[in-house]
C-alpha cells in the first residue's frame, strides 16, 4: 500500500522547482566552467555560452514567479487553517520538538536510543523547505540585481556587482551541493528509501516504511480515522516508469555536475 504525503499542488510545485533548479544549475555551472570541456558539454543543449545566459535569466525569473505563487499558496493554506494552530503537528514551521527529535535521531544513529517517532515532517525536511526560502531570497535577489548591471549600477555603486556575483555564486554552490549530495542521499541512497523515495512522485510513499519512520503521524492519522483516505494501491506501470525516469535523470545530472565541478575546480576563472 502507498501513502499520499503530498497533494497534487505540492507535487507540481516540487516538479517545477526541480526542473527549473536543474536548468539553473546546468547553465550556471556551465558558464562558470566555460573554458573546460565539462562546461562546454553542459552548455551545448542550451546553445552555448551566450544563449545559456538567456536561459539562465529567463528561468531565474520563472523561479521567482513560482516563489511568488508559492507564497500566495501558503497564505491561502494559513488562512484555511485559522481554526487550527499554524504551529500544529501538520505545520512545516520548525518548533522545539524538532530540536528534540534531532537530538534523539542523532542518539539513535550512534546507538544510544530507539528511533524517534517522527510526525508528518521530519526536522531535515523542514530544513530543506526553509533552505529553499533563504536560497530563493539570496540567489533570487542577487540574480535580479545581476540581471541588468547597467540598471543595477544606476541604483548602487558598480562594485556591488562584484559583491552580488560572489554571493550569488557561493549560495548557488551551497544549494547545489546540498541538493545533489544531501537531499539526494536522504531521498534515494539510504536503505529506507532505496532506490528512490516516491513520496513526491506517482504512487506516494511506502506505507510500511512510513509506519516505521513516522510512527507518531501514522498513529495520529489512525486515531483521527484519516489513514484510509490517504492510502491507496501503487500506481500503474507507466506512472512508475515516468517517476523513476525523472528521479534517476535528476540524480545522474546532479552527480555529473558535482563530480565534474570538483574535478575541474582548478580551471575556473573566478
Amino acid at each position: 500500500m502507498r501513502l499520499h504525503r503530498f497533494t497534487l499542488f505540492q507535487r507540481l510545485f516540487h516538479l517545477l522547482l526541480m526542473v527549473s533548479f536543474l536548468v539553473q544549475a546546468t547553465t550556471g555551472v556551465g558558464r562558470m566552467y566555460a573554458e573546460t570541456n565539462f562546461g562546454k558539454v553542459l552548455l551545448t543543449p542550451f546553445g552555448g555560452f551566450y544563449n545559456a545566459l538567456v536561459w539562465h535569466k529567463l528561468v531565474g525569473i520563472f523561479m521567482l514567479v513560482l516563489f511568488g505563487v508559492h507564497l500566495i499558496y501558503i497564505m491561502i493554506v494559513a488562512l484555511r487553517l485559522r481554526e487550527r494552530s499554524i504551529m500544529g503537528p501538520d505545520s512545516i514551521i520548525p518548533n522545539r520538538m524538532d530540536m528534540r527529535m534531532m537530538v534523539n535521531h542523532l542518539g539513535w544513529m550512534v546507538g544510544r536510543n530507539k528511533i524517534p517517532p517522527f510526525e508528518r515532517w521530519g526536522y531535515w525536511e523542514k530544513f530543506d523547505y526553509w533552505a529553499v526560502f533563504w536560497g530563493m531570497v539570496i540567489i533570487g535577489g542577487t540574480g535580479l540585481f545581476l540581471y541588468d548591471p547597467l540598471i543595477s549600477s544606476a541604483i548602487m555603486p558598480g562594485w556591488t556587482i562584484n559583491v552580488a556575483f560572489w554571493i550569488h555564486r557561493i549560495e548557488a554552490i551551497l544549494a547545489m551541493a546540498h541538493v545533489f549530495l544531501i537531499h539526494f542521499a536522504i531521498a534515494h541512497l539510504r536503505r529506507h528509501n532505496f532506490p528512490m523515495d516516491r513520496a513526491m512522485f506517482a504512487g506516494g510513499a511506502d506505507l510500511e516504511s512510513a509506519k516505521e519512520e513516522r510512527a507518531a503521524w501514522i498513529s495520529r492519522l489512525e486515531q483521527e480515522g484519516r489513514l484510509n483516505n490517504l492510502t491507496s494501491r501503487d500506481t500503474s506501470l507507466p506512472g512508475l516508469v515516468v517517476s523513476y525516469l525523472i528521479g534517476f535523470s535528476a540524480i545522474l545530472l546532479g552527480l555529473y555536475v558535482i563530480i565534474g565541478g570538483i574535478v575541474n575546480f582548478r580551471y575556473v576563472t573566478w
Binding site: M109, W159, N162, V163, I167, I182, I186, L189, R191
Partner: peptide
C-alpha cells in the same frame, strides 16, 4: 564589502555542510 560578504557566505556554507554531511553519512550507515 566583498571581503566580508565572501567570508560570511563561506561560513554559512561550511556550517551547513559541517552539520549535514556527517549527519547524512551516519544516517545511511545506521
Amino acid at each position: 564589502f566583498l571581503f566580508y560578504a565572501f567570508w560570511i557566505m563561506v561560513a554559512i556554507a561550511v556550517l551547513t555542510f559541517a552539520l549535514f554531511i556527517p549527519h547524512t553519512f551516519m544516517w545511511i550507515v545506521r
